[in-house]
């Protein structure tokens, strides 16, 4: 399936693009992360540490174990700092 993957804040800067289309067979967020890390050094570096990494699946917060089957949009970002 094809998903649109979005990156925000320093993840966007580290990876170098705000979003991209990814062809994936990943079932869970963790599988997608493994695939992304293989895309190159920038990705590997951005996703070295995932303990505070946040993910949204179709604009709903999830976690690294969340099922992404059928999802259209997956976003990765650091903890939010609004307000």
């Amino acid at each position: 399936m094809t998903v649109r993957v979005l990156y925000f804040s320093w993840l966007r800067e580290r990876i170098g693009v705000p979003s991209e289309s990814i062809e994936t067979e990943a079932v869970r967020v963790n599988d997608l992360l493994d695939e992304l890390r293989k895309k190159g050094e920038r990705y590997k570096l951005a996703f070295t540490q995932t303990s505070s990494l946040c993910v949204a699946i179709d604009q709903e917060l999830g976690d690294m174990d969340s099922d992404i089957t059928g999802a259209e949009e997956i976003a990765f970002f650091p903890p939010m700092t609004g307000g």
Binding site: F8, S9, W10, F77, P78, M80, T81, G82, G83
Partner: peptide, 25 residues
Amino acid sequence: MDFLKSRAPFWKKEVTQSGESWVES
């Protein structure tokens, strides 16, 4: 305000004379 701070998807970056940095949660 408590939920806007840490549940709404905003990220702040501060730019000062000594450089720029993302605000950490």
